[in-house]
């Protein structure tokens, strides 16, 4: 784990340097334009100083994004409409419900597919097709449908969209996992005259756990993407996706960038948590590598 630390940090440092360079290049025209209007010419150091502190830069430099993140998370009250913690929480809860819904759906479908051949042949091709349909095309429809059914709560629509993206990795992983016991193991349980349920509960399910966690890690990241996609085209006013939308409408790039980074941090945290759970569970089950 720490073997990679030095290279990762180096690459990150290089990325930050590139980012600063790009910020100077992209923000310079605006600064020069304004100086020209005032009949001044900017020296290089003045120009750089200006590009680092514009109010509406084309590309905000890292420290501006960092400051905005700090301001909107630590310095604002979490109940405030301007707090990223508040918006992050909205997104997180929709992600959580979507993840729960998607995982349950994926698990049930996987069990059905492993046990019923008809279900496998009917459903599996459509499950694959469902992932090639761009969900964003469906997102506005889901909201219209739910509104017609009398469900105005935006969280439900977001959760459904995020479940749509998250069920597939769980389904594929679990089908593989439930089929992972070797023929010999299955035969052994037959000689014990185990019932179908016992085979499922004592052999198939435990041996699918490593597969389950691997797909859960993909699934939770997909669920977060789904929630944010669900917030973008639907005119949501709360949530990280909504912050991106509002930042775009008010021409405030720093707001967009800070919301993007908040989403990235959230994604990283979620994947890490699932990874830790994976380690714990596998160790308890004696399956740790």
């Amino acid at each position: 784990m720490f073997r990679n630390l030095a290279p990762v940090l180096t690459v990150l440092a290089v990325l930050v340097v590139i980012w600063y360079g790009a910020a100077i290049v992209m923000n310079a025209p605006w600064a020069q334009d304004r100086a020209a209007k005032q009949g001044k010419t900017l020296g290089f150091s003045e120009l750089v100083a200006n590009t680092m502190s514009q109010e509406r830069p084309r590309l905000p430099p890292p420290h501006q994004v960092g400051q905005e993140l700090w301001k909107t998370t630590v310095e604002k009250k979490v109940t405030s409409k301007r707090s990223l913690v508040f918006h992050g929480w909205i997104t997180l809860s929709a992600t959580f419900w979507g993840f729960l819904l998607g995982t349950t759906l994926g698990l049930l479908m996987a069990v059905g597919i492993v046990y019923f051949r008809t279900l496998e042949m009917s459903l599996m091709p459509w499950a694959i097709v469902s992932q090639t349909i761009p969900i964003v095309a469906l997102a506005p429809m889901i909201i219209v449908l739910l509104a017609a059914l009398g469900i105005e709560e935006r969280g439900v629509a977001k959760a459904i969209i995020s479940a749509y993206l998250c069920y597939f990795p769980v389904l594929v992983g679990m089908v593989k996992g439930l089929r992972s016991p070797a023929a010999m193991q299955l035969d052994l349980l037959k000689t014990y005259s185990a019932s179908g349920f016992e085979i499922f509960w004592k052999l198939r399910l435990p041996s699918s756990v490593p597969y389950l966690f691997t797909s859960l890690k993909v699934g939770i990241a997909a669920a977060l993407v789904g929630t944010i996609v669900g917030e973008l085209p639907t005119g949501a006013i709360r949530g990280l996706g909504a912050r991106i939308l509002i930042g775009d409408q008010f021409g405030n790039p720093i707001m967009i960038w800070s919301a993007l980074f908040a989403a990235a941090i959230l994604a990283g945290a979620l994947v890490t948590i699932v990874g830790l759970l994976q380690k714990l569970a596998l160790r308890k089950m004696g399956m740790a590598e």
Binding site: V8, A221, A264
Partner: peptide, 17 residues
């Protein structure tokens, strides 16, 4: 070694944003 972990991380991000 430096780019692979970062690339893996970025690939999981909501880049549509």
């Amino acid at each position: 070694r430096g780019l692979l972990p970062i690339g893996n991380f970025v690939a999981a991000l909501p880049i549509v944003g």
